[in-house]
């Protein structure tokens, strides 16, 4: 008699356990939203095209980078501290991507055309990684490029310094996807591993 009374309880208990296991499996298999290290653009929109010049005065437009992820950074070759640090970091980002590095192109845009000719900017960029594209151009062309990412920059006179003048500028790295949409901005301080991980996430998403 006792065992008869227990049997349904047993079955019920087993059913609850099975259900629990099923729910647990479902709950754990739910994809967790990926959290980007960079600042995600709320409404990724195509970046209006712009053109600058690289070595030998060769024109390169933003649209020429289509088909690959673009990491775009503004700076100047005279900068001894933040700009070379960021370019070295982006070199490590490419290295960290391994065979996926071909899907990413790094463009360094000078905001100091007075000192940075297209040749000088291109040479400087390739010293960090031979694949980097260095770009400069007329003040108007640079202003147009900067405006696409809301980059601000300004010349500051430095009368007591051998520098003569210095440039202040936005120190973000902008990520544009293969369709030319601005997706993420990385503030100064984000690590190479974090940028690599964000890129790997985006690359895996479309695979």
């Amino acid at each position: 008699m006792q065992s008869h009374r227990r049997a349904p309880l047993f079955i019920l208990g087993g059913g609850v356990l099975a259900g629990l296991a099923l729910i647990a499996a479902l709950a754990l298999s739910q994809p967790r939203p990926y959290i980007f290290a960079g600042v995600v653009q709320p409404d990724p929109a195509p970046v209006e095209d712009f053109a600058l010049e690289t070595a030998g005065g060769r024109a390169i437009a933003l649209s020429d980078l289509r088909g690959r992820y673009g990491l775009i950074v503004f700076g100047y070759t005279f900068c001894p501290d933040v700009c070379p640090g960021t370019l070295a970091l982006l070199g490590r980002v490419l290295a960290g991507l391994g065979s996926d590095r071909d899907q990413v192109v790094v463009a360094f845009i000078s905001i100091d055309p007075e000192r940075d000719t297209p040749d000088r900017t291109a040479t400087y960029a390739t010293l960090f990684d031979p694949a980097f594209i260095g770009l400069s151009g007329t003040p108007a062309a640079i202003a147009t490029a900067a405006s696409r990412f809301n980059v601000t920059y300004a010349r500051q006179e430095a009368p007591g310094s051998a520098a003569g003048y210095l440039m202040s500028h936005s120190a973000y790295v902008y990520l544009v996807d293969p369709q030319g949409h601005w997706r993420v901005s990385f503030p100064y301080g984000v690590t190479d591993d974090e940028i690599t991980r964000d890129l790997q996430h985006l690359i895996a998403e479309v695979r």
Binding site: L20, A24, A27, I35, A37, T86, R92, G189, E194
Partner: peptide
């Protein structure tokens, strides 16, 4: 109730993942 409890547990698990925000100020330095 179980589903809610499990969802809460899953959330707690997710919260335990190392944070990917707030990279520290060593832009490679």
């Amino acid at each position: 109730f179980l589903a809610t409890a499990l969802a809460a547990a899953a959330l707690a698990l997710a919260a335990c993942q190392p944070s990917m925000m707030n990279g520290h100020g060593d832009m490679g330095d």
